[in-house]
Design a protein around this nucleic acid. Structure first.
Lengths: 204, 204
DNA sequence: GTCTATAGCATGATAGAC
DNA sequence: GTCTATCATGCTATAGAC
């Protein structure tokens, strides 16, 4: 805490502080993320903060950027290759829910940060960037899978993907309120069944 | 601001402060809601705060309670009586989106408050209460409409309602990120079309 | 009930020794 | 680069005059 630190690159220090910030906000919520709490958690003196980040806003930006990247990477790391449309949709939505279920507090913290980003003009670009690249990834994913299995959609894939994302977000958000696994599972099954009607098998 | 106030009942004062708190958080976000900002906005001296509310947490509770009630009331005030399933679902989801679209900053503020409630143990019951009563209302609504029009569902109505809510929340959340009216409209249409396949006309 | 004044503390940021 | 000490400000909450 107060023991003198050996030299580290600013990059490493930043990483260390971003880790700490994430830990604090996971444990105690966004308002608890103060420069002091973060440095303390990182085992660094308070003064360390301001030669790694110019301001608290800069820290938030770094946290958001890294975590959104990570969470998207995790969401798409899951390979689902069922040939059945309903099964594929089910698995996709469930994969996303599982991420949240594994670390609910971290997920909650991330939504708090995104809330902040949606309002703070300085972070607005991040909220948009997250939204856009997520849609982009999902669309690419759906497109690849569809053509691999000879499935086509009765509407542009982007539009279909947007609905997938909306449903997935909605189910996840509900689970965060009620933590009801069974209800979530039923919702996913039901939604997948309905959404599958948007697909049609290619008569190739 | 500093001019002496005539006497008002504590109830009225509370109402006044809740209004002010909502205004502040709509304009400047949840973190800007300080006891000072609220009383200033209400045109009251700072000291007024603590004989209306025991603490800041009490204020948050009052705001959440009132606003959740209002927003649910508004959502269900819209009478939609189309006999076509797809049209009914479309209208229902759109009604909810319209509420958010009318006052996006207020909606954003409310989600921030709900985020807070999901984490703060003292407010946890409110988050649950909102979730439960919302589901309850939607279910009752769907049930009434279905029996009036001779429609039945291939799954328990509660489950269907849960999916409706999830889709609605998801679409709304997406819109809050991209403010893309056209995309939202398409998502609603697509989702409604898919969800309508869960219904079946009674062969009465 | 109403309001002023202030206690008591935490905050983000900086100045400057090492 | 590293860290201590401190500044200026803002916060919630309360004590106590009116």
């Amino acid at each position: 805490m107060t023991t003198p630190q050996e030299h580290r690159s600013v990059e490493e220090r930043r990483e260390q502080l971003v880790d700490a910030a994430l830990a604090v906000m996971t444990d105690d919520g966004l308002p608890a993320v103060t420069t002091r709490a973060v440095t303390a958690r990182a085992g660094l003196p308070h003064g360390a903060f301001h030669y790694c980040f110019g301001s608290k806003g800069d820290l938030f930006r770094a946290v958001l950027e890294r975590e959104l990247r990570r969470s998207m990477a995790a969401a798409f790391a899951v390979e689902i290759d069922s040939p059945a449309v309903t099964a594929k949709i089910t698995a996709g939505i469930r994969a996303n829910l599982d991420l949240v279920r594994a670390r609910p507090d971290a997920a909650l913290a991330l939504t708090e940060l995104i809330s902040l980003a949606r309002r703070d003009p300085a972070l607005h670009d991040l909220a948009r960037w997250e939204h856009d690249s997520y849609l982009h990834e999902v669309t690419a994913n759906v497109e690849a899978w569809s053509s691999a299995h000879g499935i086509s959609w009765r509407r542009p894939v982007v539009q279909v993907s947007r609905v997938f994302i909306a449903v997935s977000e909605g189910v996840t958000s509900s689970w965060l309120s009620d933590r009801d696994d069974q209800a979530a599972e039923q919702s996913i099954a039901l939604a997948a069944e309905a959404l599958a009607t948007l697909a049609e098998e290619d008569a190739a």
